[in-house]
Nucleic acid binder design. Sequence first.
DNA 1: GAAACATGGCCACCATCTACGAAATTGCCA
DNA 2: TGGCAATTTCGTAGATGGTGGCCATGTTTC
Lengths: 338, 338
Amino acid sequence: MATIYEIARAAGVSPSTVARALRGSGYVSPDKRALIQKLAREMGYVPNHAARSLKSKRSQKVLFLIPDIYNPFYFRMIKGATEVLEEHQYFPVLCHTKGDPALEMKMLSNLQQGFGDGMIFVSFDFNPKNTAAVNASGCPVVLTNNYQSPDGRDAFDCVFVDTFDGIRMAAQHFISRGFTRIGYIGGNIATQTGRERFSGFQHALQQNHIAADQRLFKVGDFTMESGRRAMQELIDQRTIPQALVVANDLMAIGAMRVCKEQGIHIPGDLAIIGMDNSDLAQFLDLSSIQMCEEEIGRNAARLLMERIENPKLEKRTIRLQPSLALRKTSEAGEAPAG
Amino acid sequence: MATIYEIARAAGVSPSTVARALRGSGYVSPDKRALIQKLAREMGYVPNHAARSLKSKRSQKVLFLIPDIYNPFYFRMIKGATEVLEEHQYFPVLCHTKGDPALEMKMLSNLQQGFGDGMIFVSFDFNPKNTAAVNASGCPVVLTNNYQSPDGRDAFDCVFVDTFDGIRMAAQHFISRGFTRIGYIGGNIATQTGRERFSGFQHALQQNHIAADQRLFKVGDFTMESGRRAMQELIDQRTIPQALVVANDLMAIGAMRVCKEQGIHIPGDLAIIGMDNSDLAQFLDLSSIQMCEEEIGRNAARLLMERIENPKLEKRTIRLQPSLALRKTSEAGEAPAG
DNA sequence: GAAACATGGCCACCATCTACGAAATTGCCA
DNA sequence: TGGCAATTTCGTAGATGGTGGCCATGTTTC
């Protein structure tokens, strides 16, 4: 509530002397400084944020545009980012776009308002319209997760996890163990996500000169139920592979449940690796591809802090390597129980 | 980037006319207004947030003090609160206290800085020190989750879930089904949480004139492992109850796992209700007490918005009623399988 | 005695908003 | 049509709280 003016009056000095004394910059005699600091403490002085940021053009806040506020994936990102932001005395402001492009555009304009000094932008759909708006704002923004530069040039700072490589690694893991009949349950090839992951899988097969058997590849929609269906088809076809790479944990769990019901032993009869390394995967001892969301967050925040510090930096893209969290479902199998 | 001065110059009017035209307040001739609005659009004018909030003393932000940023409980709260904040054009700023009292105090001072217009404050430990700081700030703050007014007077706006009643309901549910030997696994009685929940359990027994059998009450530390241990003790004692109320889902799941390993059929031999209604509970078909975190968030945000609107309101406390999410583990049992 | 340094007040600035009052326009009646 | 009041229009002048440049004054040092 108290301002430097009131302190100045109480101390019998001018407001600017108070400012200097409290900021520690410029010349103030030691006794005056002590007096001012004492008064400030007593009067409960706290500098006014709005005034300071009007002058300094820094708000100490970073906007977090996320499409889905109740998704653990994003929360882990936020957690990671917050760790780094804290070190720089910055705070995340949550802006929830609900995946709605109109809201997204509206939130982007908040940036120009000085609502925040920068933004970490996550979108389901990076397109010319919203990326142009980001560019137009001229403010520091880091795109994360699935932005792809249209012409391969780094127009933005960007952090993403190489899901292609995650799936590739999982398949390679099985191949290295000597499996040749490896199944895949993925998402729709029409989506970028679906395509990217499947290519990773195909790449591993090709690298190892393993012929692709189309019957072993099923498509789901990332729900547990679709995982069940896909697994059931494999069983019905009597083409149960030796190992299965699944493009997310939920589908993998669906598949596991069918196996359990039908006496297919995991990992003895069928080894499985899922993707996301969700809490459920940990709980159910499902091997999974670790997407390191916190690492995304940390890197995005780091890039952003650096850019706020120095806007002239070259634009950078950070490609994070996923890792395998190997658990029971992909253990080198002893002979099947049944 | 453009300011009202530049627009004023472009339109050949004074800055205050621009302000009036854009804000829609005061008298501006229709043609000038139209011109100014057109220019503002063309020049990409967005009002400066810092300047506006310096003048208006509103930042459109609400601080969210939370002890643990990656706890599903809290981010459900955040989700609920965000819904309400959005309606009022407010945004949540996350302040992570890590349960550290010193950090908590520091963050509280952010409030006075005008960092936010109000705060939703969640603490592991509400004590005279931090509540005094809240009071001293004179800013709108809503305490949630486990604050208890020391003298029963409403010094603060406050939202909490009646965990006492949640546990009581769970016990009552079993009692109504005719069970008389009901076990309880809770937290340490030295903690407020532990005490509160256990009282709810005892209350249900007393109400129904059921004698308490101390051998059926075990203490854990809210981890799965401690749930396992507690259940194992019940088994070793050969005092397996008919039903079990457990003070959180993790411990309940630990108990379930022991039962599964040792052939105790759930719910045939033993019915279980946990607490939190976590994702895991849903996944494992564990009955649970629903703490309605989103509802806490919504109510906290609502109280806060109302208080920011009108600081003179009476202080209010909202006590939310938990509900039972009944699933398989508490189904009226057919005869046990084995 | 002059240069070097320390001290602290004054003022402009950041961008917006608003109270006030001057100026312009309109309406109304004689 | 002139005159007066009511109404509309719009600019001037702060105010918000903090910061930093500039400069006048005071002190020390050689």
